[in-house]
Design a protein around this nucleic acid. Structure first.
Length: 111
DNA sequence: ATAATGACGTCGG
DNA sequence: TCCGACGCCATTA
């Protein structure tokens, strides 16, 4: 039996909810790629995650989910870059992409 | 049930 | 580094 009371926003598929949950866990200054999220969940794929973000991402720290090469979400580059600078997310020389080697979050608690 | 659609990823040139 | 081609997966028409 579910322990979670059904929220009004229960039109979301289980997958979409799972994706949004993970995104909310990403600490400020850290990021995950679309593929990372799918792997973390053990289901779905990068594209499916992107589809969810495109539709419901506005409610979560969407800028912390980006492409595998460190580039910000397609269509939201400028906004994302502002957030990165504000959160001091490690950027690559040139400042157009995130330095995944330093900013990538594996899912472990911040300690 | 089949086809089309993405805030994607990898590979080859 | 910059494409294009293909594969991938949930969602929607």
């Amino acid at each position: 039996m579910p322990s979670e009371p059904l929220h009004p926003s229960e039109q979301l598929s289980a997958f979409a909810e799972a994706v949004l949950d993970v995104v909310e866990l990403v600490p400020p200054g850290r990021v995950m790629t679309y593929g990372d999220v799918a792997e973390y969940l053990g289901r779905g794929g990068p594209r499916a995650v992107g589809t969810v973000m495109a539709r419901y991402g506005s409610a979560v720290p969407w800028w912390r989910v980006l492409r595998a090469d460190g580039s910000p979400p397609q269509g939201h580059e400028a906004q994302a870059l502002r957030h990165y600078r504000r959160e001091r997310t490690p950027l690559r020389p040139g400042g157009e992409k995130v330095d995944l080697s330093r900013a990538r979050w594996d899912g472990e608690p911040a300690a």
